[in-house]
């Protein structure tokens, strides 16, 4: 083989190595955003699990706020069944919309409960309630951060997928664009008072 042949071989090897690197990077990014999506589910479930404990613990202190507590329990029940429906038919618009609505209602009910806590100064001095508030605000944060992490990883994946020269390979291997989560918050959720105990 002459020098020309060697150079040709080197160029081919370099190109293949580059293609492999780009491919692996795209796979890694795709898996990352998929995992981020799963995280949202995990955090929503955590929130469902936390709420009964919360209501149970708050019952003793909030005899006169039975309505608020019952609203939280009802909203949680609706959200759980909506989540099951959505899991049964992933991607179906009506189920997804139902879930988003139920989630929004739950967020609103929790927000009202937090407002009730604020109205009772005795409660603010209670170690248990403070611990509960911390758990609740942390859970709400976790849901929000999970969504945000999903969107961040989708953005990174899409940017990589669309930039040159990766877009050539992405097209060849069928890396399709990922959708950002938009308007995951319903109107009700957006109106809910911001949970802040700092």
């Amino acid at each position: 083989m002459g020098t020309g042949g060697l150079i040709f071989l080197a160029v081919v090897v370099a190109l293949v190595a580059f293609a492999i690197a780009v491919y692996n990077r795209l796979v890694a990014l795709r898996n990352r955003y998929k995992n981020a999506y799963a995280q949202i589910d995990v955090q929503l479930k955590r929130r469902y699990d936390l709420i009964p404990n919360l209501v149970e613990a708050a019952k003793g202190y909030l005899q006169h706020e039975r309505g608020t507590l019952e609203a939280v329990v009802a909203a949680r029940g609706a959200a759980v069944s909506a989540a099951q429906r959505a899991a049964g038919a992933p991607g179906e618009p009506s189920a997804m919309q139902g879930l988003a609505q139920a989630e929004g209602a739950l967020g609103g009910a929790l927000g009202r409960l937090m407002a009730v806590f604020e109205a009772y100064p005795d409660l603010k001095a209670n170690q248990n309630i403070l611990a509960l508030q911390e758990e609740l605000s942390s859970t709400e944060n976790k849901v929000a951060f999970a969504r945000q992490a999903f969107n961040d990883s989708v953005m990174e994946y899409n940017t990589k997928r669309e930039s040159f020269p990766d877009n050539i390979l992405a097209g060849m291997f069928g890396f399709t664009a990922a959708e950002l989560l938009q308007a995951t918050e319903s109107a009700a959720e957006r109106q809910a008072p911001k949970v802040s105990f700092s």
């Binding site: 942390s138 944060n141 976790k142």
Partner: peptide, 12 residues
């Protein structure tokens, strides 16, 4: 601990 968990989620 909660804040660390939150940031772990946010940073993946």
């Amino acid at each position: 601990l909660n804040v660390v968990e939150e940031m772990a989620i946010a940073s993946g």
